[in-house]
Each structure stands twice: as structure tokens, then as C-alpha cells.
Computed example of a mutant assay.
Amino acid sequence: MTVAPGTQIPPASFNYIPHSKDSESIQACGIPISLNAHEEWKGKRVVVISVPGAFTPTCHANHLPPFVAKASEIHDKGADVIAFLSSNDPFVLSAWAKSAGVKDNSIIFISDGNAEWSKQLGLDVDLTSKGMGMRSSRYALIIDDLKLSYVAQEEPGKLQVSSADAILANL
């Protein structure tokens, strides 16, 4: 069962590597830190964009670039946080952010290892047949003070309801 607007998000602790001047090089690994969603996102408007995998064709070429280009516009429309979520580890997500030219924390890249949080939301996908295991599906959330105000899961092969333009239209 997929969560619906009005539902409070389940507790979560995500690992991520925040941008820093010391780790701007693609060769620099950085140090993962933990983000407690209920503590960090309380009282905030948060956009979560979930993708099946960093560096995968649709995610890398079509999904992420418009968010990088429109991050300021999304923040100006009221988003306190933009978070890209994937089942990849935080080191891969940090490299993905760097490769996409994200040079600040306007977008954070959070790891949902084993798609545990996505599974609680009913938004995980089994990609075992493609050698990728359990993953988060492609979806978008807008969270207002820990409650979902927008929940949209993409149909396989589509990129519409979780696009930057869809988020801008729903903020």
C-alpha cells in the first residue's frame, strides 16, 4: 500500500555526505553523516525526489539535471530542503552530486540503503531481475512539517510526476 497525502512520514535516518570545500574533488570521498528526518525536517517544507539509481540513464541524463538547473526556483517557491534519495551508498551519491555540478547543499543526496524507508512508504521496487536488487522506485514527495502534501510515483519508463516542473507546479 502506498502512502497518501496527509500521512506523517515514518521515522528515518539517512546517511549523506554534505558538500564541503575540502571534498569538492571527485576523488575525495568525504565523511558520511546521519540525517534524522524527524529532527531535521520538523517545521520545514521538504522535496524528496527518489530515483532507482545514481548514474543510471534516465536518472542521470533526464531526472537530475532539471533539478540542478531549477534548484533556486524550487527553494524560492518555499522548499527548505531538496533531497535526492536513492538506495545507493552515500559515497556513490556524493560522486553523483559532484559529477552533476552541485557545488553547495542546495540539493542533498541521501542514501536509503536497502530501500528500507521507501518500503515503509510502499514505494520500493524489486529490480532483482536486472541485477539491481531492491530499490526505491522513481517518486516525488513534498513534505510539510513531516506530513505528506504530495505523493507521486512514476509509471515504469515515465518521468512526469516527479519532474522538476511537476514539483514547481505543486509547491
Results as ranks from 00 to 15, higher is better:
I33N: 02
A28G: 05
Y139I: 07
L35R: 04
D144C: 08
A71D: 06
L121G: 01
A152N: 13
D22P: 07
S20P: 01
A37N: 12
S13P: 00
D22A: 15
G43F: 03
M134P: 01
C29Y: 00
K147N: 15
P156A: 07
H75R: 14
I26T: 05
K77N: 05
L127F: 09
S23Q: 10
T128I: 06
L146M: 10
I108S: 07
P52L: 10
Y16V: 00
L168T: 13
Q8H: 06
K98Y: 02
K21T: 11
I167P: 01
D126F: 09
G122D: 14
I31C: 02
E24F: 00
P11F: 01
Q27A: 15
Q153C: 09
M132C: 10
N36L: 07
D144F: 04
A4P: 00
L123R: 08
L121W: 05
P32E: 00
S137H: 10
I110Y: 10
N88H: 08
C59R: 04
P5Q: 12
I33A: 01
V51P: 03
S162K: 13
W117P: 11
V47H: 01
F109P: 00
E73H: 10
P5I: 10
H60C: 12
G157P: 06
D145Y: 11
S99E: 15
S87M: 02
S20N: 00
Q120D: 13
D112P: 07
K77D: 02
H38N: 11
Y150F: 15
D80N: 08
L35G: 02
G101Q: 06
N114P: 02
I74S: 08
S106I: 07
N36H: 11
K119D: 14
D89N: 12
E155K: 15
G131E: 14
K147S: 13
K44T: 04
A152L: 05
L146F: 05
N170T: 13
V125P: 11
S23W: 02
I142L: 14
V68N: 05
L123K: 09
N114H: 10
A140Y: 07
Q153N: 11
S13R: 06
S99F: 11
E154K: 12
R135V: 09
G133C: 15
P90C: 10
L159I: 12
G113N: 12
A54P: 04
N114Y: 05
I82D: 02
H75P: 05
Q153P: 07
P5W: 13
Q153D: 08
H60K: 14
A166F: 12
I142Y: 08
S25D: 14
G131R: 14
H75W: 04
G133R: 15
R135D: 03
A83H: 02
T56E: 04
